[in-house]
Design a protein around this nucleic acid. Structure first.
Length: 418
RNA sequence: GCGGGCGUAGCUCAAUCGGUAGAGCGCCAGAUUGUGGCUCUGGAGGUAGCAAGUUCGAAACUUGUCGCCCGCCCCA
């Protein structure tokens, strides 16, 4: 027996309607916000993620699915969606399209991690990317789009937390301040953070180790080190959010684990799905396009984890719309009547009505049971009498009411009886 | 990469002290000749994750291994 690879999940026929619901919601929100879909490959050159996501990040150093292809190229399955979109933006000269360029994606992503609640090795993201605008209202719009998406899904238990981690220049100053603060405490901190001290002191803020958290509590806050421009930008973003009635809390400890973020960062978090509470995360990444060899193009975006959203919805009792059912089941009895039922059903299908008939050589009674199980709205039986008269009775399963009509009228009847 | 928990039917789970495997749900068929849900009857379905070991005897005890789940880390 060969089983599914660790950290992956099958979406079975009985569950797939939930995924379709999520995806439909994503597409409809995207459409309303003027975002167009962009599809990029599932794998890219490894180099793209090294430069885009950041060589010191955990994602890059220990979580990527990297392999050499038969041509000797180093290839990596995308661990996130942004780098590929940025690459495509540059490669296709999209900087020459009318700005801002507003795009979204639905894609699987791959990270080699130990699976747990809300964390898989293959997972799916809905993300949006807006290129070209450095305006604070764009940040607010992106956050509002995320919020609208969650609302559309009926998700209530996700709290919005925002922060600003500044631009290159204020971050440099902040890093200096952090080092100054942490240096005398280094001995009491975890090995990980001692390592971060040199490579990326900002990341220490994010540490969950008890000892480190105590020390971090007194550390300087990035918000106190923002340059005037970044400060004004952050204030403006908050102002636009308030204008839209979006509730948020400023959490100065949000750092984000991907190196490309600048200025605004945000997360929608929930406590209802276990330890992996971030259901949607994003922010601004003004330096990414330049980092990847493109021009100086600012950008904002977010990514939402579809598995986590599904978990959250299931755990908080959010109702999914019922999956579609066959409008009608047509039963036959013997060779000629089964053939007639088969013809009627397929004729309806061609006209866009979902219809079903027997495939198991079952008795009429068993066909009824089956029709009931699959939720058919109406059932018709074609026997000798019906074949002769050219008409039949549709039985409405919900209440048992019956409707007589010629075969030829079934389509009209179903079309009008929603 | 590190910790903890758990592996018995498709699913959820039982089985006293070690005595040779069960229930509910689901699936299939039937309960007078052409009609669902409720009920009743019957049926199919198990290499007890796998492999060693202890024992007259292992689903149960021991070890190893694989898998899953949860947490750390990280992140969506």
């Amino acid at each position: 027996m060969i089983n599914i690879p660790k950290g992956t999940k099958d979406v079975l026929p009985e569950q797939s309607y939930k995924w379709q619901y999520l995806e439909d919601a994503a597409r409809s929100v995207a459409a309303a916000f003027g975002l167009k879909e962009i599809r990029t490959p599932v794998f890219e050159h490894t180099e793209l993620f090294l430069r885009g996501v950041g060589e010191t990040t955990d994602v890059v150093t220990k979580e990527m699915y990297t392999f050499e292809d038969k041509g000797g190229r180093s290839i990596t399955l995308k661990p996130e969606g942004t780098a590929g979109v940025a690459r495509s933006f540059i490669e296709n000269g999209l900087a020459n399209s009318p700005m801002p360029l507003k795009s979204y994606y639905l894609t699987p992503c791959y990270r080699y991690e130990r699976p747990q609640a809300g964390r898989l090795r293959e997972f799916h993201q809905f993300g949006i990317e807006v290129y070209g605008s450095a305006q604070p209202e764009t940040d607010a719009e992106v956050i509002f789009a995320a919020s609208s998406f969650l609302n559309k899904l009926g998700i209530k238990g996700a709290r919005l937390e925002i922060n600003s981690i500044g631009c290159k220049s204020c971050r440099a100053e902040y890093n200096r301040a952090l080092k100054e603060y942490f240096r005398p405490h280094l001995d009491g901190m975890c090995a990980n953070c001692r390592d971060r001290f040199d490579k990326n002191p900002l990341r220490i803020i994010d540490c969950k180790e008890e000892a480190c958290r105590k020390i971090t509590a007194g550390a300087p806050k990035i918000l106190d080190y923002l340059c005037p421009d970044c400060r004004a930008h952050f204030e403006s973003v908050k102002g636009y959010l308030s204008a839209l009635g979006v509730e948020y809390t400023v959490n100065p400890d949000i750092v984000r684990g991907l190196d490309y973020y600048t200025r605004t960062v945000f997360e929608f978090v929930s406590t209802a799905i276990g330890a992996q509470g971030t259901v949607c995360g994003g922010g601004r990444y003004d330096g990414l396009i330049a980092e990847l060899g493109g021009g100086n193009v600012p950008a904002v975006g977010f990514a939402a984890g579809l598995e986590r959203l599904l978990l959250l919805m299931d755990n908080t009792g959010v109702e999914f719309p019922a999956p579609p059912v066959p409008r009608v089941y047509v039963a036959g009895m013997d060779e000629p009547t089964r053939k007639k039922a088969f013809g009627i059903v397929n004729g309806l299908r061609v006209k866009g009505i979902s219809a079903e008939c027997d495939h198991m050589a079952r008795s009429v009674k068993a066909q009824f049971k089956y029709a009931d199980k699959i939720g058919a709205e109406y059932v018709a039986v074609i026997g000798g009498n019906e074949l002769e008269s050219g008409s039949c009775t549709l039985k409405r399963m919900r209440d048992g009411q019956t409707f007589d009509m010629p075969f030829a009228d079934i389509y009209e009847f179903l079309k009008n009886n929603i």
